[in-house]
Design a protein around this nucleic acid. Structure first.
Lengths: 147, 147
DNA sequence: GCTGCAAATGCAACCTTGTTGCATTCTGAA
DNA sequence: TTCAGAATGCAACAAGGTTGCATTTGCAGC
């Protein structure tokens, strides 16, 4: 399985089976190059500066949405309530392990730990998904002095 | 220091040294009565329904801001990027168990199961909170035929 | 290399959440 | 009772995010 950081955007898109468009390729490249999760505004600004043809605001939202849907990107919320996106670490589904979410930068990190088994539900309840979220401050943000 | 849950809103406000106003009293009462952190919109709706005189939107923001500033309320961001507020000290109530979120009606139910222990973190990471969210359909919504 | 269709895009308008400025009202101490 | 400063209400604004719809484009099938 391809590594999401070294693989080319084109191949990634083909692998997951969604159309290869210029916008998606540029967004994936930007996310791969970023060291920190980026907000929608940051991605838009960077793409606008990099290319003669800026990407439409709404299209960017929809591209990010589609990337999150197929697992190529991760979405988190920072302390100001703004969505931040990052390239997914690996191509395998994000069901088999646990996420650490940095409440400062919005980064999502995949932990090695196995997720716990779902608890017993009351009668009539139907289980759809289990999410084990660990929150705190990542190494980079911990080292940085508080703003 | 008085218990933040049993103490009357009036006393709490006097204790921290800010003015006792009708708006603040109502907001604290609502937060104390809530079982879950409430969004600004939820508080506004509830106060509007409870009283003949609804609280101004901006005033509610400022009341919440002042309560957070003096430590009577806590502010967090939910997964949709919306601020949620809770009476200070209520958080410990929700640490000892697991939540089930109904994706249909949005209801939150507290399960009896004990939450799993937090996994080992990489070097430099700081743990703040662990959230074990189970999602699905609650008994009522499961019984009801799909819309 | 065409063709057709679903998917993706661009544009405009809109909604929600949160903030700022300013005039008015109210709290609480003197 | 008085009154200064804090709190409130109203209007307007800003940022982030979503929806509807017409147009363009990727790509599968021929």
């Amino acid at each position: 399985m391809a590594d999401l950081h070294s693989a080319s955007p084109d191949n990634l898109l083909r692998t997951v089976g969604i159309k290869v468009t210029r916008g998606r390729v540029r967004v994936i490249a930007a996310l791969q190059a970023a060291r920190q999760p980026m907000s929608h505004a940051e991605i838009g600004t960077q793409l606008g500066a990099d290319a003669a043809v800026p990407l439409d605001r709404v299209t960017l939202y929809r591209i990010l949405e589609s990337l999150v849907a197929v697992g190529l990107a991760l979405r988190a919320v920072d302390t100001r309530g703004v969505f931040r996106f990052s390239a997914a670490g690996t191509l395998h589904r994000h069901e088999g392990h646990v996420h650490f979410r940095c409440t400062d930068c919005g980064g999502v990190f995949c932990l090695k730990a196995a997720p716990p088994s779902p608890p017993k539900l009351p009668r009539g309840f139907r289980l759809a998904a289990v999410e084990f979220d660990v929150r705190g401050t990542c190494a980079v943000c911990s080292a940085r002095p508080a703003a």
